[in-house]
Simulated scan of single mutants.
Amino acid sequence: MKIGIAVLGAGRWGVNLIRNFIKHPNSQVLAVVDPNLDSLAAVQKQFNLDASVILAADWSQVQALPGLEAVAIATPASTHYTLAAAALKQGYHVLAEKPLALNLTEAIELCQLAEKHQRQLFVDHTYLFHPAVDRGQRIIQQ
Rank of each mutant, 00 (worst) to 15 (best):
D134E: 10
A6K: 05
P76S: 10
S27H: 07
H24Y: 05
L49W: 00
F21T: 07
L100E: 04
A86R: 04
G9Y: 09
N20G: 03
A114R: 03
L110E: 09
V133G: 06
A51Q: 06
E106D: 15
L40S: 07
Q141A: 12
L40H: 09
I54D: 07
W59K: 02
L40Y: 06
L88H: 12
V71A: 12
R119G: 12
A114C: 08
F129S: 08
L83M: 10
K2T: 12
P66V: 04
Q90F: 11
E115N: 05
Q112I: 07
L88A: 07
A72S: 12
Q28L: 03
Q112S: 13
L100D: 12
N16G: 08
A70I: 04
T75Q: 13
I5T: 13
L110W: 08
A42E: 07
F21W: 02
A101V: 04
Y92W: 12
A107D: 14
R19D: 13
S27D: 05
A72R: 00
E115C: 12
A10R: 00
D50Y: 00
N26Y: 10
E109S: 13
D58E: 10
Q112G: 09
V123I: 15
I18D: 02
I18K: 00
T126M: 15
A84R: 13
K23F: 14
Y92I: 09
